[in-house]
């Protein structure tokens, strides 16, 4: 476009910058991604399939799905409630609450695991009581879920808040004036407006929940076939020098990441970019 010439660079500069960006993204992102799959198939597809179908891997996959299947819905309900509260009402302490919701982003995953060990571990506050009642939280599924919920806490809320803020409350107010009740307003007015943003938040939340390593590693105890999630299983295999098997499981997780990115692009396309975080 000729009329844009004063607001863009000369062609050589433009191509230099594009070239640089492509080199950066290739070396930094595409190369590692390719490496996962190449390493996974280095010793043939038989090793690859065996690594994913052995008992320890299958139970790790099952545990990962279970932990995400419980944590993600919990944080989705929370995200919807928090976004409704923050965007539809003005009250004292609102901005303080908003920064508290963001707090987990500033906390190391390892610390997210640590806090639950301090509460529920054998030497933790509730440790003796839990032991007396034969309830196990740390080194068991409940601990893994708590840690996962902690690290994925803000994801849905963070997507919904800017979206609902920008949409305002006029439609909801009109619905209420016309006699709609609370749930009707939410289901028929709000939900259709935020569905893509909600889906996007759930996608990100799920990707993080299934891939979480640090927090889960602290609370899981690495009991093979029992409390190993898929990312932890990758670590165990890697530390046992079973590199091809480790990368086979890593490839499965990388596929999940690619699927997430693909769905995300699709959501952005369908919603006309409105789901992109602002």
């Amino acid at each position: 476009m000729a009329n844009r010439s004063v607001t863009t660079e000369s062609a050589p500069v433009r191509w230099l910058l594009i070239g640089l960006a492509i080199v950066i993204l290739t070396l930094f992102l595409l190369l590692p991604l390719a490496a996962v799959f190449i390493e996974a198939f280095r010793r043939g597809s038989e090793v690859f399939i065996k690594a994913l179908t052995e008992d320890a891997a299958l139970s790790a996959i099952k545990l990962t799905l279970l932990a995400a299947g419980i944590s993600v819905p919990l944080n989705t309900v929370f995200g919807l409630a928090a976004a409704w509260l923050i965007t539809k009402f003005r009250f004292k302490g609102r901005s303080f609450l908003l920064s508290l919701i963001d707090l987990p982003f500033a906390v190391s995953p390892v610390i997210a695991g640590l806090v639950f060990v301090l509460l529920f571990g054998a030497r933790g506050w509730f440790g003796p009581w839990l032991k007396a009642n034969d309830i196990q939280i740390i080194f068991a599924l409940p601990g893994i879920i708590l840690a996962t919920v902690f690290v994925t806490f803000p994801f849905v809320a963070r997507e919904l808040i800017p979206l609902m803020e920008s949409q305002g409350s006029d439609q909801e107010e009109a619905a209420v004036t016309l006699g709609a009740r609370g749930w009707q307003v939410f289901r028929h007015v709000t939900l259709p407006n935020i569905k893509w943003g909600l889906l996007y938040g759930i996608l990100l939340c799920n990707a993080r929940a299934m891939g979480e390593f640090g927090a889960v590693s602290v609370v899981s105890g690495h009991i093979r076939g029992k409390t190993n999630t898929l990312p932890l299983h990758v670590e165990v295999l890697y530390n046992e020098y079973q590199f091809s098997a480790a990368f086979a499981c890593a490839a499965l997780l990388a596929l999940l990441a690619l699927l997430t990115l693909g769905l995300k692009s699709l959501v952005e396309h369908l919603s006309g970019h409105s789901a992109k975080g602002h």
Partner: peptide, 24 residues
Amino acid sequence: ILDAIVDLPFALPTAVAGITLTSI
């Protein structure tokens, strides 16, 4: 495609990033 791939580090589990960066 490049625009979409920028989010890869968000979506890729950190343990996967760890072992693949190490191998490279």
